[in-house]
Structures are given as C-alpha cells and as structure tokens.
Design a protein around this nucleic acid. Sequence first.
RNA 1: GCCCGGUUGGUGGAACUGGUCAGACACGCGGCUCUCAAACAGCCGUGCCUUCGGGCAUGUGGGUUCGAAUCCCACACCGGGCACCA
Length: 971
Amino acid sequence: MSETTTSPAAEGAGGPPSEVAAPHRYTAALAADIEARWQDFWESAGTYEAPNPSGDLAGDSALTARPKKFIMDMFPYPSGAGLHVGHPLGFIATDVYARHQRMTGHNVLHTLGFDAFGLPAEQYAVQTGTHPRVSTEANIVNMRRQLRRLGLGHDQRRSVETIDPAYYKWTQWIFLQIFNSWYDPEADAARPIDTLVAQFEAGTRPTPDGRPWGELDAAEKAGVLGEYRLAYASDAPVNWCPGLGTVLANEEVTAEGRSERGNFPVFKSKLRQWNMRITAYADRLLDDLDALDWPEAIKLQQRNWIGRSEGARVDFPVGDDKITVFTTRQDTLFGATYMVLAPEHELVAGNGNGSIVPAAWPEGTHEVWTGGHATPGDAVAAYRKQAAAKSDVERQAEAKDKTGVFTGAFATNPVSGAQVPVFIADYVLMGYGTGAIMAVPAHDSRDFAFARAFELPMRCVVQPSDDRGTDPATWDDAFASYDAKLVNSSGAEISLDGLGVVEAKAKITDWLADRGIGEGTVNFRLRDWLFSRQRYWGEPFPIVYDEDGVAHALPASMLPLELPEVEDYSPRTFDPDDADTRPETPLSRNEDWVDVELDLGDGNGVKRYRRETNTMPNWAGSCWYEMRYLDPTNADAMVDPGIEQYWMGPREGQPSGGVDLYVGGAEHAVLHLLYARFWSKVLHDLGHISSSEPFHKLYNQGMIQAFVYRDSRGIAVAAAEVEERDGAYYYQGEKVSRVLGKMGKSLKNAVTPDEICVEYGADTLRLYEMAMGPLDVSRPWDTRAVVGQYRLLQRLWRNVVDEATGEVTVVDTEPDEATLRALHKAIDGVTQDMANLRFNTAIAKVTELNNHLTKTTGPVSRTVAERLVLLVAPLAPHIAEELWRKLGHADTVVHADFPVADPAYVVDETVTCVVQIKGKVKARLEVAPSVSDADLEAAALAEPAVVAALGGAGIRKVIVRAPKLVNIVPA
RNA sequence: GCCCGGUUGGUGGAACUGGUCAGACACGCGGCUCUCAAACAGCCGUGCCUUCGGGCAUGUGGGUUCGAAUCCCACACCGGGCACCA
C-alpha cells in the first residue's frame, strides 16, 4: 500500500517537461506542489487544532490527558510591507519545537495572532489615504498568506486580532478591572475598590482631610478614590511629543529624549492623562523575576528599569515648612551643605502660599546664586519657565553643565544644625524620590559639579581610601566609594565617626526615626505607566464623564465600546519643536459619539455624559493575548478559569505558571514584557487567573541582518543588483560600500520569504533559517547559501524515492552496523538538540546521517529511512509528510512518535584513546568504552611509541581519564 | 561614564562539566566525473606557513594547569542596554 485513497498526493504533478530524465526529482516546482497540497490537507483536517479540556474548543480527551505545552511567539504587527525573511525566524523556531513536542506525547497549543492597533498602522493608513481598518485588514490577509506558505502548524481557531471588537471587548473589560481596584498593602495584592470604600465608610481608614466619608460629595469621593485606583487620571508632567501629536510612556522615549517612533523631540508637559499604577507592583515585579526561566540579560534590564534603591527620607526644616528628601547616602548627612529642589517642586510654585521663596535676597547673597535677578521670586520664576521650555533633548545635551538658582531660603541640617541654602536646579528630577535632594558635594559627583559652579562649601565626611586627602577643594571629583570610614561626623547628639558606611547608615537611620524626622525607605526608578494616547487607532476607554467631570466606568454590559467610524482619523500633529502645543484627540471631533445619554445602572438613571476621547496605547492588546488564545470564542469571560488553569496554571518548577516557551526579540525587555507581567498580577490578585506570570520561559531570537550597500552619496542601492569583483562591490558600474545592517524595504536589501519559496520551497527556507546558527545569535542573511539546505532535501528525497519513477526505493533488509550506529547517534543528538532549541546542530546531525546514506551504495533500509523522515519532520514538515505517505503510512507524520535512540548503538564499540606525553599526543589506542583506569594506564605505558618517546626517563605522574585519554608527565 | 554580551578558516558556525591532532555541518573556492554544452548531480581537495622533518594557529598580552577556544587578570575591538535616578 504505497498510496492510500485518502492521500492528497497527486502523482506526476512534479517537474517541468524539460526534466524528462528525472521527472520525480525534488525540484522547487515539486516542492511547491507538495507544500501546497499538504497545507491544504492540514487545514481541512484541522491537524494542528489543540483541544481544550472543556468549552467550545473541547476535543479528544486522550490528547488533553497528555502533558500540555503552550508555545508562543511574540505576535506580529501587520505592516504594509509584509514579511521579509527576518520576521519568521522565531515563528519557524517555535514551530519546529512545537512539532517535536507533539511527536513526544504533548498536547501542544501553538498559534499566532495579530497585534494590529497602534501608531504604525495608523501612519501607514494616513500615508496611503485608506482607513486604518481597511489597510490593517488587508495587511493581515497578506501576512496570513505569507505565514501559511511556511507550513507553520498553528491552530487557526485561536488566531486572535487585537482590533476585533470581540477581542478588545475584553481589553476594555480588563481596563475596568484595573480601574475598579486598588493596591491593598495589607494583602500585598490588588483588591476591588469596594473594599477600600468599605474601609472609608467604616472609618477604619481616615479620609485625607479627616472628614467622615459620608460628608464628602461625589466629586470629592471620586478624587480620593483616584488616589488609590490602579488605573487613574492625573495631571502630571508627561512626555508630550508634538511631532507625533500624542503623549508617550517613559518606555517609548529614547535616552536622547526623543520618540522611539519617528525620532521627534519630547517635552515634559503637564497634562491630564490616564496612568496605570504599575509602581504598586514594583517589588513583586522585581522579586518574581527570580523564578522565571528568562535570559539573565533581560532580567537584568527589568531589574535596572525597576531600579530599587534602599535609602532614607529625611526632613529638613525651612521656617515653618520642611523639605523632605530621599537619599541613599544618609550616612553622609553631616556633609550636606546645600539642598536642591526640582524646578517643578511645589514649595517653589509661585510666590507666597506655601512657597519658601522670600521677597528679597538675604543679606550678602553670592552674585552667581541670583542668576542676575533682582528678587528670589523673579529668579525662581525665570528658571522654572526656562526649564519647562527645554525639551528632554536639550536637558540631555546640557547634562554636564549644571544650572540652577538660589531660592533665597535656607534649611536646617537636622543633624549638624547648620543653615544650608536651598536651590532649584534641573539636575533634580520631580519624578524621582521626593523631587528634592540634600546635596553632599564631597561624596556625589553631580553635587560636586554643582558646588564647583556655584562656589558652595564642601565637607568631607567619608575618609577617602585613596591618597587625595580630606580637603575637597583640592579634588577633581567627589569621593563616592562605599568602602571607607566616616569622619568629621560628630554632633551634639550623635557621632558616626569611625563607622563604616553600612554601619553609619543604620545608626543615622535609627536616630532619624527616633526623632520622627526621617525613616528608612525604598525608592524605585520605575514610574507609573502612562496609558492614554491621542490617537484614533486604538481601544476606546470604557469611561464617561458626568457634568462635574467625574469619571464613571461603563458597565460590562456595554462592552465592547466600539471605535466609531469617522471621516477624519488623522492625528493632529504639530511643529515637532513647539513645546507650547496641546494634544487633540481625533475622537473628540465626533460630537455625536462623545455626547451621550446613558443609564450606567448605578441608580442614577439616564444622564448625559461625555465619553473619554483618548485611546489606549498599542501595548494594551498585547498585555493579555496569551490568555485569549486559550479560549478565543468565550463570550462570557476573557478566559474560562478551568481552561486557563489547564494551559497556564502553576505547576512543578513553574511556581507562577505561564506559557511554557515564549520566543521573541529582546527589544521588548521593558515594554511589553513588563506591562504583560503587571496585568497578569492584577488579574491574578482579583482571582480571574491562576497564573501570576504570563511567560515562564522566555527566549530571545537573534536578528537576521543583511548587507546594506551605499553609493558615494550614502544612499542605499538595491542589494540584489550589486556585483562583487575582487573583494569590492559595484552597483551599475559604480563602486559601493558594504556594511551589515537590518533588513528592510528602506535599505533596499529585503528578501521576502515568498521569493525563497518560489526558488527553493518553504522546507528549504525553514531549514536554512534554522541552520544559519544558534537561534539567539544575530547573523547575516546570505541568499547564495540557501542552496545548501536545498541539496540536503534533494539527497534525502533521492535516498527514499526513485527520481525516474517516483517509486519508493527502500528495502526491508536490516541496515548494517555502521548505519545503525549513525542512525542512533543522529536520533540521540537531534533529540537533545530539539529540546534545547539547538536546531543548527540538529540539522548538522541529520545531514551527517543523510550523507552517510548517500555514500552507502545500495538502497536504504526502510527502518532507517522511516526514522530519518521522522527526524526531519519537525524541521521540514512538507517533504516529511510526502515521504511518510509514500512509505505507506496513512496517518499524518505530525502526530507520529519521534524515534527513540537505542543506547546500545549510541556508544561506539571501541573508543580511540590518545596517549599524551606532557600534553603532546604520542600514540593512540583502540579500547572498549568500559576500560578501567588501571588497564588503560598499563596499556599506554606498554605502547612502543610511548616507551620510545620516554627514552628511559622516569615517570612523575600519569593522568588517566578513561576511556579517552592518558597523559604521562615524565620526571 | 556605568552595566551586560561577544571576538574561532575566505563566510555562517561546531567543539558535552578544561581532555582525541580545534574547525562538525553548510556556503564559497579549486580540481575531476557525467554532458555536444550548460544546469543539476556525484567524487576529491580546502586554517596558515613549510626546506615536507615539521612549525604556527580560537582578538592581543600575561597567568593557573600534566593539559586552556573553554578558568583567572589586564588590554583592544564589535554589539546591546541604561544614562543627572540622589
């Protein structure tokens, strides 16, 4: 039964007419035929559908009884340019891994959706003059076609799109969960906001101004709760990007203070925006990294981004007011000779009314402190204005030059009693700590630079461990080491002299706490997540405002709140350098949609409201998509708890649960990966999911790079048309330069998977991408080298199929000993490599076995051929299916058992043992793998070549590492 | 500036916890066979130098060890992240 009636194989379809001699040769045309047929077959048979234990996608309980594997890629963005060969690298890798897992007895969930809201889709739409929905959906159709052609084994039923209202209904629902909860420090978890209201009502938690909860009006209550909600609107300095016309999260702003998209300047602007209180989770986001199986580099990036610092808060009295600072060097308190407030600090906001700024300069104020202004009020106002007008770009560029101005006020150093001047300066940031610092110029290089510029006193309180002496005036920079002892730090009540930095910190912290003027505390670099964008193409917020401006959540029954169809979806953008602009939301132009009468079901009946017109950032949809894959059709919940528990629940070795393998680029280290972790924890706390981490194992694939050729003007030229002569490169006769870069349309070096599929077939492309190198390493694409994997498949084909007749050539005789050993070594090696994502070496081992069979004269034994096909199946599924069917199997190879190596054939019968003298090889012995150390040593010493080399010299030492090595050290 | 990676033939890369003579597998290159010819395919060769004995080779210079691509120190170069975070 070489063919079955259910076979999709269409014999005789291969090869163009010119190849009469070998009509059944494995050519690109035959590959295309095979691939298209099997892709159709898989689709119609639902081969890759993974059953859930219950619900709409429930299925074969024999499969759900197997151990589960949830294998995921970071889902793609449907760009207008389509895929180039760099994009599917990770998709192919997870597919190979998923296929191997299926063949080793797992219920494998593997699918791929589309992350389709956001800036690039909208920009593309604006550029091409089409509605984002139209262009995005067209892009998705094109990408689905490209991906299907690669033979990726995805469960298509689970392929979600973030722009689908049935999907973003639940994105909005999750937003409401977050909005309607607060972080309860007692429980160290998020809890429903009702539990907080209950505390206020019962009086167990006092209101900010001490009045009973019942006396607060609705707006006041909303204001108080807003201080606790995990999603909240607030007026705060945010990253405003006029060039894009939207505000951005910190994570979306580059180190140069520009937008990651578009590279426009970003300004700090005080705007009312939605935020997510991710800072409440800082400790858990940090601590829970430990149990995750992630690359250390990514964990480190998250740790640095969260930026936990232990230190202390210290109060410095200023008249009747006080300035509270955060410091990590409370031990140097005696060395604090001045203070600095951020320009935006409330204590200098305007004259009088809580401001510490006096009417006139104090007697004898230093000229350089005043900035040339007549009064402190003028100086402070001028500096604040100047700081606000500076873009982050300028602030960065001028980072080394310290600027600032004296406020005219003095504070009291609480430990020394010294009166110290208070400055404002933009090197202190409002967003970190308390927006105020105690300046210790002798032991902090920024304070040192400022003190130099403003001729401020310095006091050395930590004895330098080098030879610079104790007079800071003679130093080149501050002495900031922790490895030293305190000096010059004695006051009336406390002395730190002689203590190490760590002991001094502990002592002063206790002292401050005893007096109620400070306490040990922890600060984080992490800021809350700015969550609103002034865009059309995003999820609308399920929020409306009443006439008092109080935000109300829409009831879940009103979800999804669909994005309205509009004429004008373009963002309002501005002169990129104009900081004085204000965002305008596209949705606000639709008065019909904005102005609504609703009954929110809160007992207030039908009332008029105005809708929130911001939209969510494109990260929103990707924060939870792994859960929708599990239960994509559920209309009653974002995911059924039992199904979530089955695929993602905590288990042995995975205390937080999560996806078993998540593959994607490292560029999302602090964006998507941090946000998704945060949402998981909130949903976990609120009892919606059992996992508290979304992704247990993370793997970062490298980038496929490509050569960029540029002409003398530096303009990229079409890489495909560049010719190489004598080590130089020419485009249309002109010499061009070559550098390694990214692959992309704009660099004119993109190679599409479609063209490689046409020339060689998808299986060759898959093999080439996997064989190029380790998955996590970036490497250059080389179209010329693809042919190597094509040749492998041709030899594989020829080892099984007669090119002239198309008939299978395998025989039922037993393979010889050497072939058995080659086979089982390959099985053993490939099995290990598959499990460790080392596909490049797996392919090398398959190649070795295949080459062995090619070189062996005579037909291949069926038992060897079948197992070779199974080894290849995860890597090149189409040709494997075809050969498997030709070999007489009616069932798909997808669910066949992966071969198991016989240990008897993995170990060689004899091992070559080298005999070295002082590390130089002098002789070789063929020995049994089980040879004892003593026997091996005796045999080595008896070896004539060894005796000769020793020449009668004595032996000092013999190192024996049976069975591979004996090393003799002569006396 | 600080923190992470990395550096192996002409090229991409192999090499288990330090242990066979480093270079698997592939590309490229050279030669040969088949062919009228070409393509395809197959076979052989391919780290460098060599007086053909051998010598030198894993970025550079040291060190540890019987033995180092692998461990340690310093330096150079390449890539990535963070960047006035108190």
